[in-house]
Nucleic acid binder design. Structure first.
Lengths: 197, 197
DNA sequence: CATCTAATTAGATATTCATCAAATAAGTAA
DNA sequence: TTACTTATTTGATGAATATCTAATTAGATG
């Protein structure tokens, strides 16, 4: 399901009057004035809520003379209510429509590295875009040995090979979980953690 | 589940940022700044959303040094998401906390009839309270024969036995589905429809 | 056509709420 | 203690929205 549709569904249900309308309709169709009467609101208010419920595909209607009967679309309600559960239970990370893809193809990664590193291997500057920044950090951190403990001074010297502002990059390493710091000792994290938290 | 809790749950889910937070947390715990980073909002915004999610019992948290990791409360989310489905699927009409009971006991009905009818069987006046008004209408309409067709004139005369303002009461009969009108012919509806629409 | 009825629209008001920048708090480290 | 880091509070702003009254529409009836 689309993200905006899911949001609209819950926004629609998230109103006490509309929930009560649904609870009334579950016992059978009702027309506008009967709803207004039972809920102690005016007909325009009912019209307002019904158009919200219509947009969320939660009702359908049948006209008889001047009177419009509203029916609960139970199937659609159940389907939409369970969408959030599916979203949260599914094992792999689903991406919303239009959401930026966190993982990049290798080809795209090379292009980012070409753009932000000079020919001598030093870094021009950290990309502002998170996705690209992570690629740069990943590239630099791979120059360290896994399982090895480093002092802060050693880390600084290592990073300075790429860029003079070692403090910023060192902080980014920690913030994005490329490295872990215990006291004054730095150590590389396993790749599963990189950029994930 | 309480009505207000159900409403709060859906109000909480009905926000695009909060849904995205839940989708991120499903892959594992995250701390505030990581969320702020991934969602491109400021830390105060995350604090705001987390307190909403906390009120709705959708997260729990664990502190490590200065960093607070947020975890998805998947069980609670699923339970609350399914509450609306149960509400709408359950066969008998469940009543919200504080909602007026539509059906009255026979004893209460007698008391209403005693209060609004005179000893000679005529009606003093229609009750203003909907619940009581329906009891009075039901009592009068029971004087008609089911399955019989009446002209408007016959209906007027019938109602006049109870009260001179037959027009108002006749209209109430139709509005509350005690009777059905086709052209100039009136007929009693089956009791299941009385007062329900 | 004129009338009635149910529903909708238009416009106004008050409230809720998502977000941010700036200031503060709370906890950790040196 | 002093400095730093993560999170929270405060106050402001703009947008969304639930509700009402009054006016209008649309369909049915006579």
């Amino acid at each position: 399901m689309q993200l905006d549709k899911l949001v609209r569904f819950h926004k629609t249900i998230g109103d006490v009057t509309r929930i009560r309308i649904l609870a009334l309709l579950k016992n059978g169709p009702l027309h506008g004035q009967a709803l207004a009467d039972k809920l102690s609101v005016t007909p325009p208010t009912i019209t307002h809520h019904m158009s919200k419920l219509r947009e969320a595909d939660l009702i359908f209607e049948r006209r008889d003379k001047n009177t419009i009967y509203f029916y609960l679309n139970e199937k659609s309600l159940i389907l939409q209510a369970e969408a959030i559960v599916k979203k949260v239970q599914s094992p792999e990370p689903e991406l919303w429509n239009g959401e930026e893809v966190e993982r990049m193809q290798d080809k795209e990664k090379s292009s980012v590295l070409r753009n932000f590193f000079l020919a001598d291997g030093t870094l021009k500057h950290l990309p502002a875009q998170r996705k690209k920044k992570l690629i740069v950090l990943e590239h630099i951190v791979k120059g360290l040995k896994p399982g090895t403990k480093y002092t802060e001074r050693e880390i600084n010297e290592f990073i300075r090979q790429y860029h003079p502002d070692f403090a910023t990059i060192r902080r980014e390493f920690i913030m994005n979980h490329y490295m872990y710091r215990d006291q004054d000792i730095y150590e590389m994290n396993p790749p599963e953690l990189w950029g994930t938290m």
